[in-house]
Nucleic acid binder design. Structure first.
Lengths: 106, 106
DNA sequence: TATATTTGCAACCGATTAGTTTCGCAAATA
DNA sequence: TATTTGCGAAACTAATCGGTTGCAAATATA
């Protein structure tokens, strides 16, 4: 069973859940209230998100509050890092081209 | 058929392809040489990546060179932006706590 | 104690996925 | 011209996915 951060954020509902609980922890019922599906479906998403450690849970009586593990999101950021270098350098190359054109105009 | 950047990078093979062609354009055959699958399977991945505009192709005789559309990767970066604010502010809060501890020690 | 609420889990279902094999087409080469 | 090479598309398959319904367990409330 493949279960990584990238597969976790592939589903739009899971991305919405992530955004939803980013600022404050929420119970499955409360989360499900924001979507047009059953609570069980949301529960499944929460299980997947938990399995790849994107969220953590905190029991409070019979309620369970789910919270985003923001630092796990950095894994995506880390992967993007290598491309950030490229797209920045490509811009630099473009800058150089423009600079050369300017110089030639003189 | 859902086809967005997040679904595109969900597959580990596709992520590897993206990394592979990030620096220089490559033909399907050359790409397939790096993996333990058939060229046709790679071709399918390339189609998906093309459909969500993550890569572009350039015909050269009977060869087709695939190249990464780096700027499309920024879409992921853009989505991460909202969390970057959170994880930075969380760190700031931690900094403040540590600062308070330091002050109290005086 | 009896009942209601909150939740996770299992079983099932249709759709999608990633892979395979087979094929046809166009370009290069003998 | 005949053959090889590079490629995408179609048909098929096993596995996975996202959703459903129907439970059971634990906690709160009457």
């Amino acid at each position: 069973m493949r279960r990584d951060v990238f597969q976790a954020i592939a589903d739009p509902t899971r991305r919405a859940i992530i955004v939803l609980i980013a600022l404050q922890a929420m119970t499955p019922n409360a989360i499900a209230g924001h979507f047009d599906t059953t609570r069980q479906a949301i529960s499944k998403h929460l299980r997947i998100l938990t399995e790849c450690e994107l969220i953590t849970q905190e029991q409070q009586g019979r309620e369970i509050y789910y919270q985003l593990e923001v630092k796990k999101m950095k894994e995506i950021d880390k992967w993007l890092e290598q491309f950030r270098k490229i797209w920045e350098s490509r811009f630099n190359q473009l800058d150089e081209v423009l600079l050369t054109i300017k110089k030639n105009k003189k």
